[in-house]
């Protein structure tokens, strides 16, 4: 225990802790809307062996992306436009969206919108959340462009081998619960979620200075 003046000064309280109530959104509870996968290891293993390793091989042998045996999207804007497009001839396309939502370095505001987008999309989208460390797996496989947002969309169109799609979808659908966002369709009143945010305020409020008025005769 030091007896310095600074240490002694810290023992005297100058501010006090206060709790400020804050109304939180009843809907933004990300963990509730992401579909749960019972065995993530199998899905990750399948993704790496069937897609990412082959992507790495195609890139190393400098094969253009248009000649790849599947349509794959990494860019956030491309994925958003694919999910929100309303083209009638493309409606039958299904898609599998892999998201590294457990990894760091992915903005939370970006991830908040993904389940809602998948739910509102006119296509059949299976949303898969990947375990921590999957972003690095993506970055190792795709080196020609920066993958910062941790998204990978695989289009299930005619270009892709149907047996291959079936194999992936079968293994995913077995373990994945369907995506449900109850507040978008039939709304039930939810109790208000009030947070108490820690803050501080000075112990002694500044006294209001009295304005000296000149004496009037």
């Amino acid at each position: 225990m030091s007896n310095s003046l600074k240490a002694l000064d810290k023992k005297i309280a100058k501010r006090r802790q206060v709790y400020k109530p804050l109304l939180d959104s009843p809907f933004i509870r990300e963990s509730n809307y992401w579909p749960r996968i019972k065995d993530q290891k199998i899905v990750t293993h399948l993704l790496q062996n069937s897609i990412l390793n082959k992507c790495k091989h195609f890139e190393s042998s400098s094969i253009p992306r248009s000649e790849w045996p599947w349509d794959i999207l990494f860019d956030f804007n491309e994925i958003i436009s694919f999910l929100s497009s309303t083209d009638s001839h493309d409606k039958d396309d299904s898609a599998i969206l892999f998201v590294c939502n457990k990894d760091q370095d992915i903005p939370a505001i970006l991830l908040q919108q993904i389940p809602i987008l998948c739910y509102l999309s006119q296509r059949k989208v299976s949303l898969i959340q990947l375990p921590r460390g999957s972003l690095q797996m993506f970055q190792e496989a795709i080196t020609d462009r920066a993958i910062d947002n941790g998204l990978l969309l695989l289009r299930g169109n005619s270009k892709l081998d149907s047996s291959f799609v079936r194999q992936i979808e079968y293994s995913i659908e077995e373990d994945t619960n369907p995506l449900t966002i109850p507040w978008l369709e039939s709304l039930k009143y939810k109790p208000s979620d009030i947070k108490l945010v820690k803050s501080s305020m000075p112990l002694q409020q500044n006294k209001v200075k009295k304005i000296k008025t000149p004496h009037r005769k």
Partner: peptide, 15 residues
Amino acid sequence: RNYKLNSEKDNTSTA
């Protein structure tokens, strides 16, 4: 990229 709001960092919440 790891930005968190102050209300998400350290708080106590009651419903």
